[in-house]
């Protein structure tokens, strides 16, 4: 066993801190907001909710604010457009800007020029493409980091998108409460399916990661039974999966759900999505610098 101080990172598995401590918390918020903003826009476009699209725009703007707080030199933010060829952060920044731009135009047209259906459809499709891009790029930005084995997985972008869409659907449910009963039932059905898909992908992701490398296995151990277990089991599993699925199943059999129960499901789903981003970022560990025995 190698022992060294004070540079434990060279001989032990060490947690990444840059994207979770201090200002780093805001990148987790930004990833979360980007995911649910994209998911909400796609869901709102499908269910034709103008208010949902507007809230998606607000969430995307909040994502930008969260990004700015994360940066040490926010006044230089314009430089982040410079290298989309290789940097996922640069690509993501462009996706966010285009999404905000197209959504803004689409909302203005929908509100004040509703006759321009072709233009509205065009901008809705364009905004939808970048809503999806905004949602998935956060996963790619994280999974591109080959130094952190738990992140370096092809499943992660899919997980982030599914989590974003599920969160977006949950927010849309809150927005559409009190509206058309048929639409609400249709939305609940979609949420039921997405929740099950989300739970399966979380399971597959963790299972797959355990045998990808020893470092990744260490990360999963931290999540399942280590220091991050409360965050994972309470935040991700209980709030993100168990409570929403329990409510979803109960409403399926009961026929109609109480408003309070639906609000609980929505809040629970949002907490779960946020906890997932934090849990995955916190679980990122580096291999020791020095070779093993």
């Amino acid at each position: 066993m190698i022992q060294a101080k004070p540079y434990d990172f060279m001989v032990k598995y060490t947690q990444q801190k840059e994207w979770i401590d201090g200002r780093g918390n805001f990148i987790a918020f930004a990833f979360f907001l980007g995911g649910i903003s994209g998911g909400l826009y796609l869901a709102s476009s499908y269910f034709e909710s103008l208010l949902g699209q507007f809230v998606a725009l607000i969430l995307s703007l909040l994502m930008g604010v969260s990004y700015m707080i994360h940066l040490s030199k926010p006044l230089r933010f314009w430089r982040m457009f410079m290298k989309p060829g290789t940097s996922w952060i640069a690509r993501g920044f462009i996706f966010i800007m285009l999404f905000i731009g197209f959504t803004f135009i689409q909302l203005i047209l929908s509100q004040w020029a509703s006759d321009a259906t072709t233009a509205i459809m065009t901008f809705t499709v364009l905004a939808g493409i970048f809503a999806f891009a905004q949602s998935i790029y956060t996963g790619f930005a994280v999974s591109y980091v080959s130094a952190i084995k738990i992140w370096n997985s092809a499943i992660l972008p899919i997980l982030f998108v599914v989590c974003g869409i599920t969160g977006g659907l949950a927010i849309l449910l809150a927005i559409m409460m009190g509206g058309s009963h048929a639409q609400l039932v249709a939305l609940e059905n979609v949420i039921r399916v997405m929740l099950i898909v989300f739970a399966i992908i979380v399971g597959v992701y963790l299972w797959n990661t355990t045998y990808s490398s020893i470092t990744a296995k260490d990360s999963v151990s931290r999540l399942i039974r280590g220091s991050l277990a409360p965050l994972f089991w309470i935040g991700v599993f209980l709030f993100g999966i168990l409570i929403p699925i329990a409510i979803s199943v109960s409403t399926y059999f009961a026929g109609e759900a109480a408003t309070g129960l639906l609000i609980t499901a929505v809040a629970s789903e949002i907490i779960g999505g946020l906890a997932l981003r934090f849990a995955i970022l916190k679980a990122g560990v580096y291999s020791p610098l020095l070779p093993a025995e």
């Binding site: 994360h70 940066l71 982040m80 952060i89």
Partner: peptide, 10 residues
């Protein structure tokens, strides 16, 4: 540099 720390993470 904008201080996004992506390089530090990577």
């Amino acid at each position: 540099c904008v201080g996004c720390r992506y390089c530090m993470v990577a």
